[in-house]
Design a protein around this nucleic acid. Structure first.
Ligand code: ZN
Ligand code: ZN
Ligand code: ZN
Ligand code: ZN
Lengths: 163, 163
DNA sequence: AATGTAATGTTATAATATAACAAATTTATC
DNA sequence: GATAAATTTGTTATATTATAACATTACATT
């Protein structure tokens, strides 16, 4: 079973996360250069903080961390950065958690489907053509024009089931 | 194409909504009787207010209406009723809107997929086996145990496209 | 350097939701 | 029916998530 559709799988706790972080930042730099937008130090730092793990991060937790570092200080600081990163497709918002995760494939804009583990809190990101197709077909058959999709599956990841 | 999977389609503005409301309340009474739980006047009224239309309703709008009627008065009043109605499967929460809609098929608990029109604000509810299956299969192929699904498609309904 | 635009700072407030405890109501038991 | 237990609702306070409005700073263009 080819799983190209999994953009960001569940990760082992001891995986080399530094490379996830570096890859994400490299891609963000490229992405912003080619879009002609500015990945300022603040925006870059917010992205780094979000990529601190594969768990969704809350806006006010980001704010606390920024305050510790004497960067920014008020909600608009972090929400503006989040808006920027969302618009550039560098992060996603999980509507069912009011939290944010780094995008596993930021080079092209796309919609995703998320698997959210209720035990370990990690998130996996997919962009599965079969899922997209069945939803698109269904909407089309009802004369509905799709503009955006929110698809978030909550449950238990393989490792947490294994115990 | 048989569309049993559509539990609550988009409705014409001039449809006989009274019958939607009565059906929903009748089913709620039956549902609660068979579950041995109490559909108190407050809970019943909140359900009625939610069924005032096919548009999602916000918690604080419900609270304002209850205050006008001198029923309840504080956030916990409405949130408790919402929790009750959610647990009984009589309403659903739309995570992408922080708003609530009546369930189109409350006699059995189920997950749904929602189509949300950004123009008219109406919501259609589906429980489509093809959608459920493709998601379940995908999750299963990744060793993920599904506990809950959030599937909300935003776009334009047929009538709004027609203009 | 002067000007215009974009980004960030700052203060205040809006919108959504829950905690904790008291009072009232309903149900169960004697 | 009186009493006790459990459920529901009331009440006050607070937590959490997000935006509005306007001032200041940094950057880019001329
Ligand atoms: Zn990693
Ligand atoms: Zn897990
Ligand atoms: Zn109706
Ligand atoms: Zn519409």
């Amino acid at each position: 079973m080819a799983n190209d559709s999994v953009l960001m799988p569940f990760k082992d706790r001891d995986h080399a996360h530094q490379s996830c972080l570096e890859k994400a930042l490299d891609q963000a730099v490229k992405n912003c250069e080619s879009s002609g937008v500015r990945l300022t130090p603040l925006r870059r730092r917010v992205l780094e903080l979000i990529w601190g793990s594969h768990m969704p991060v809350k806006a006010y937790d980001l704010l606390d961390q920024l305050r510790d570092e004497k960067i920014g200080s008020a909600p608009p600081t972090v929400y503006r950065s989040l808006d920027f990163l969302l618009e550039e497709g560098l992060i996603h918002k999980l509507q069912s958690l009011n939290a944010y995760v780094g995008c596993g494939e930021p080079l092209k804009h796309h919609t995703s489907q998320f698997l959210i583990c209720r035990d370990c809190g990690e998130v996996a990101e997919m962009d599965d053509p079969d899922i997209q197709q069945v939803l698109s077909r269904k909407a089309e058959s009802l004369g509905f024009q799709v503009l955006d999709k929110t698809i978030e599956i909550q449950g238990l990841c393989e490792k947490c089931i294994a115990g």
